[in-house]
Design a protein around this nucleic acid. Structure first.
Lengths: 195, 195
DNA sequence: TCTATTTCTTAACCTATGTGAATGATAAGG
DNA sequence: CCTTATCATTCACATAGGTTAAGAAATAGA
């Protein structure tokens, strides 16, 4: 059941861990399930948890002053999601996190996160690498957002994350790409017509 | 001279460090100077260093398939800059880093970075916090890029980083905001006319 | 100081994407 | 199974921002 977590760790730190180490690691988590459309974190409230997704999907989003939603991140099985700002600073959050499908997660609170990092250098390293990878991917995404048109951003997204395209509503993908659903629809039509 | 580095560390980890600790820390760095328009890192070549800026300014950018430049980050005194992807993975870089003004930097190579992190938990924590803060700022910037118009992005940028507006050419600020110089000029005119 | 280069501004026109509204399609709930 | 939300598509029109080109202003070099 938690096999995918172990794979996730070993892939991230690029080395295998012992059964013992993995057991220690998982002791700091507790499993939880949520219905579709559950709110896992809310703007204005401290985001107390990091979630690792075992089954189902979720996404985080920002709501601007005009009440418009912008998708920050999608997360399916094997992904981590949280409001990093709020989780690390323990201040009121700036993003929402909401489930897209019914979801099974492993939950880590801040206290356990800190302890886990103290327990073993390996675990601290793991979380550092997670953040590092997330940062690098985000920087690249911003570079693309600022330098490519919506069509090529969508093409890159759909080839890189085909499993997302299948499971996630188009209006959310549009938001993730920084465009309106109607525009994405138009872009998809154009691509389909070209074939 | 390296006083600003010490301030940078203490502010980031939110605690003061001893003279001894600071001395150890700086031993891993070597100072260097570059002329204006020097290339500190190059796409395709491994970025071997992290730079801390003592004096002067630099910026990193991405060049897309059409040869168009997009600014990733600006850095002036008291800022850190590198190609994180390349530096941490030791693979060929994806961004350029170039000086804007003549520059004095403290340079840290990968070997020293690793050693420094091993030497004292405090130093490792420092670099983790640097990355964490950079991630959080970047995520927010992307949220704004995808949800706000260029005009309000420029207004936010210029109020948040007035010292950047003074020292950095407008065509680079435009690129940072994801628009063309002509558009930024138009936006500035509109703002000026409104007053 | 003079000249050449770089940067900024302006303007006319163009295009990608936004807006609003209507229609269909799909999925969800009783 | 029917009813109601939710989501996707399409279209006509509006607009922010891109493009091209020219000239002005600022800066750097000789």
């Amino acid at each position: 059941m938690t096999k995918i977590l172990r794979e996730n760790i070993e892939k991230t730190i690029d080395q295998s861990i012992t059964d013992k180490e993995f057991e220690i690691f998982t002791q700091f988590f507790f499993p939880k399930s949520f219905d579709k459309k559950s709110i896992l974190a809310e703007e204005g409230k401290t985001c107390k948890y990091v979630y690792f997704i075992l089954k189902g999907s979720a996404y985080s989003y920002y709501i601007n002053d005009n009440g418009e939603k912008t998708v920050i991140q999608f997360a399916i099985e094997n992904y981590w999601i949280t409001d990093q700002y709020s989780f690390f600073s323990e201040r009121p959050g700036i993003y929402f996190i909401e489930t897209l499908e019914p979801i099974d997660v492993l939950v880590l609170n801040r206290e356990n996160y800190d302890q886990l990092c103290c327990t073993n250098q390996l675990f601290e390293r793991f979380f550092r690498l997670l953040l590092q990878n997330a940062f690098i991917a985000l920087q690249y995404r911003l570079a693309k957002t600022n330098s490519e048109e919506a069509e090529s951003r969508y093409l890159e997204f759909s080839t890189q994350y085909p499993h997302f395209v299948q499971r996630i509503p188009q209006y959310l993908i549009a938001s993730f790409l920084g465009i309106k659903p109607q525009s994405l629809s138009r872009i998809r039509k154009k691509i389909a017509d070209q074939k």
